[in-house]
Each structure stands twice: as C-alpha cells, then as structure tokens.
Simulated assay, not measured.
Amino acid sequence: MASSSSSSSSLSISLCSSTFVSQQEFNLFHKIDRQLYTILVINIGRDPMEALQIMAFWLWLERVGFRHVVYRMLQLPVLLINELADEALTALTCIVSDNPPPSSDDYNNSIPLTQNFMKKEISLQFLYANRQIAMEGITKILNEVCFRAMRDIMLNAISHRKIPSSVSVPLPPPPPPLSFRSFDIMMDEGDQVPPEERAMFVTFSKGYPVQEWEVRDFFTINYGDCIEHFQMQEVEPNEQSLFARIVFRSASTIGLILGGQPRMKFTINGKHIWARKFIPKHPPSPQPPTAAVAAVQLQSPPFYP
C-alpha cells in the first residue's frame, strides 16, 4: 500500500522527515489521508477544522497500534464514515475533559462503532486514562502532519462554506487551550494586529549555525506564505547568529506553530531551534527630575526659534 500513513512506522517517517521533502512529495505520501479528509469536508460537508482534528485522532490511533485505520475506513460507505467521525468527536471531548467518564457500561460503549471497527479494545475509559499522551500525540500530528498535508483541501473547503469555520472540540496540550480560528478571518489579521503581537522569537544552538533561508523555508513549507518580516541577529563575519525575530502576517500563525505551548522545539536540517512568542521590552517609565536638575530647568531661559 504505497503513499499512505497507515502504520505507526510510516507516520514516524513523516513526522521526522517533513522538512526534507517537497510539498508534492509530502502530499503523495499522505495520499489516502487526503482522500479520507476530502470525503469528510467535501462529500459529507463537515467543518474543515473539526475534520482536521478527527483525522489527527485517527492517525494517532494508527501510531499507537490500531493498524490501517485510514485505509480500511476508505472501504466503508460514506454514511458509516460520518458515524465514525461523530464518535471521534465524542472521544476527543473525553480526552480534553477534566472529568472522567462515568463507569456505567452504557457510557463506556458510547463509541461502539469505533470499538467494532478497530477490532481491538478501545473505550472512553481507555482514552481518558491515557489523555495526556493522547493530547500530546494528537496535537503533534495535527500540527506537523494534518495541517501541512491537507491545508489546500481545508482552505478550499472553507472558501466554499457559507458561514465561517469554527472549532467545536479544542485539542490543546494542557494547560493553555489551543484555539483554532477560521482561515478566512486569519488572512485579514495583519492590518488590524500590531506587529509586536504577530512576532515570534526563535533561538539557535551554538555550534550549529542556522541560515535565514533555512528558517524561512521551514515555516513557509509548513504554514504557507506566512512571514511578513524576518530579522536575524546581526553578527560579525564568521560568527553565528543565535536568534531571530519573525513577524507573521497573522497572529494566529503563532498559535498554530506553538500548539498551545509557551515554547516549542523544531528540527531544521538536523539543527534544533526553539520558538516562543515575542515579548516586547517596554522602556522604563521616565523618572521625575531631581531637585537640582529641576532648578536648572526652571532657571534656563526659554528658547525661541
């Protein structure tokens, strides 16, 4: 089965190698994932961002041992795929909940189609017990695989919707929630949000020089034409820049990159970079003049141009 992420090993290859392949190659690798996502947002008409999270959940299940989920799901009738998507939302709600599901058998079996389809034991109790691992894994797949592999389909689906896209189930790693906003809103943010609110600070490891073009390519490949301004640390010749400041066209891009975390680590061509939201340093408030300075100022003659 070529060009799929239907096993945990192939998904791992995708996560590790996403910065080394072209967008066309990346899409080809995730061909069947894109086919299933297209069914969700085009054939069925589900919310594009919600469907993106559903795909991340199913791909995470593949990664933790539920084999060939996407491939097998493509063999099902569209009506049944939609029912499984509804149960995926139930599972996601359980994963992000602070309250455990009731212990009643009826509630534990509220994802019966999923349990039957997976052919392995899976329940809301199981998902809740492993919610920390699930949230981290699903969010990672959402940001590093789904958004890149399905972005064109998602934007096309959003553009054809009569109402803005919304997210019904957030998938953050705790504590801060990860909130997604519709891309038709995000595209107009640049003119309304000041640059310092759309800026990110990235740092590099000493001894592993990172070039500006590498960082630009990384974010452009993964998040599209998102950079408005890029400022690398100015250094002497033969010295290494250790940080850079990036202003994005949309403040929402920072949320997508950081995935709800205050700091995120990425690998670019084998070199690590760390990213966080840029926090501007405000100048200290001016202090009142001392008595001596005030006296001099009062005695100084006025200046007439």
Rank of each mutant, 00 (worst) to 15 (best):
D98I: 04
V96F: 01
P301W: 07
R151W: 10
N143A: 05
P173M: 01
A292G: 00
N108D: 13
T267S: 12
L171W: 05
S3Q: 15
K271M: 00
E83V: 05
P173G: 02
S14K: 01
P177W: 00
N43V: 12
I111T: 02
E197D: 15
P283A: 08
A292I: 10
F66S: 00
I95R: 11
A275Q: 04
F219I: 00
F266D: 03
V293M: 11
Y37P: 00
E50L: 15
L28N: 10
V235R: 00
Q125P: 01
I122Q: 02
R72H: 15
Y223G: 04
L258S: 07
L89R: 15
D105M: 13
L171F: 10
S166C: 09
I257L: 08
W60H: 11
M1H: 13
V78I: 15
P102I: 00
P305C: 01
C94R: 09
Q35V: 09
R198D: 00
R46I: 03
L124Q: 06
C226H: 06
M73L: 13
T253L: 12
L80P: 12
T290F: 08
D188P: 08
P288L: 11
A244Q: 07
I141L: 06
V169A: 08
R151A: 13
S179W: 13
V167I: 14
V193Q: 03
H30A: 10
D225W: 02
F117G: 02
I54G: 11
Y128M: 04
V167N: 14
I158V: 03
I95L: 10
E234G: 06
D217T: 13
A199Q: 10
F183A: 00
I111Y: 06
Y71D: 15
V41T: 02
A129P: 09
V41A: 08
R245D: 03
F180I: 11
S159N: 06
P112C: 05
L28S: 12
S241V: 02
S12I: 01
L11H: 07
L79A: 15
Y208E: 15
G137P: 05
I111K: 07
I246N: 06
G260T: 10
R245W: 03
D184H: 08
G259P: 05
